[in-house]
């Protein structure tokens, strides 16, 4: 079996002696053309892995920034198949940057797990994070993914017990997404030292790279997280640039604003290296 894009990317990042920048944007926010440009801007400015948000009417794990991004995307008429089409377009001239589809279970369930797995593999999606599908309930999805190289990426939190982390790790692949704070996306940041032990345990039990997210917004915070994690996830801070650009009446600036933040974050991670 060839090495997956996710594994290859973590190998590369590790060889460079730094943590990976995992960035998130909402597909179709405010429209698919802007999202395509933003994806390119992320890649061109050092994003190692890209999470592509799929909008959902009831995003119960998200804070206000990503909730509103989802509403903007839905208002523009974005469907799950549009999100996959966006990935397909990005893959036309990028074969290396891992793309993770992040969203909620119902649109995927509604399309059908098999049909979705086929379409996602065709579109060059490397993994999915469906935040409301716990390990107990995702075996059908994993079966559908088995014929393709799609990873099931799971979440762990500081409240995840030892026993639980083993369950979370079972059947997970690609990387583990460690939620640094109890709460929703975009909430307050955590002290890396408070979660060091949890992150190390998650890595040890799963044997997977661990990326830490929730509440990381600046280069400084990202660099601090890099001391304990294999990757740092930034989402709401990117999405906020969409909102502020729209409010300022300058939607054309969205890709460049997003690119500038990616450059700041990736620069900070390169400088920080890995401990």
């Amino acid at each position: 079996m060839p090495t997956s894009r996710i594994t290859a990317r973590f190998d590369k990042v590790r060889a460079e002696g730094r943590a990976a920048l995992v960035s998130y944007i909402m597909a179709g926010d405010p429209d698919l053309e802007t999202s395509y440009k933003a994806l390119c801007a992320l890649r061109d400015n050092g994003a190692d892995i890209i999470e592509l948000g799929a909008p959902f009417t009831d995003p119960m794990a998200d804070g206000p920034a990503i909730q509103r991004a989802g509403q903007r995307s839905l208002k523009a008429g974005t469907k799950l198949t549009d999100v996959l089409a966006l990935a397909t377009r990005f893959r036309e001239d990028d074969q290396d940057t891992p793309l993770i589809l992040m969203g909620y279970a119902n649109p995927v369930f509604h399309l059908g797990y098999e049909a979705f797995a086929d379409a996602a593999a065709d579109a060059g999606i490397d993994g999915t994070i469906l935040v409301d599908l716990p390990p107990e309930e995702d075996h059908e999805l994993r079966e559908a993914y088995a014929r393709h190289e799609i990873s099931v990426i799971r979440l762990a939190t500081p409240t995840t017990t030892d026993k639980r982390i083993a369950k979370v790790a079972e059947g997970a692949s690609g990387f583990l997404y460690y939620v640094a704070v109890a709460g929703v996306t975009g909430s307050g940041s955590a002290d890396p030292e408070d979660i060091r032990e949890g992150v190390e345990r998650a890595r040890r039990v799963s044997g997977l790279p661990v990326c830490v997210g929730f509440g990381v917004r600046t280069g400084e915070q990202a660099a601090a997280m890099a001391a304990i994690a294999d990757g740092v996830v930034v989402g709401s801070a990117f999405v906020d640039h969409v909102r502020t650009s729209l409010e300022a009446g300058t939607p054309d600036e969205i890709p460049s604003k997003i690119g500038a933040l990616a450059a700041e974050l990736s620069g900070a991670l390169a400088d920080a290296g890995r401990n």
């Binding site: 959902f56 009417t57 009831d58 119960m60 839905l74 469907k79 799950l80 198949t81 909620y104 279970a105 119902n106 649109p107 995927v108 369930f109 509604h110 399309l111 409301d132 599908l133 309930e137």
Partner: peptide, 21 residues
Amino acid sequence: GRPGILHGNKTYLLQTDDGQI
């Protein structure tokens, strides 16, 4: 409605053709 997943349970839901509630 049709079968779907919301609020941590699988049940019948009012939803669009794209699985939005």
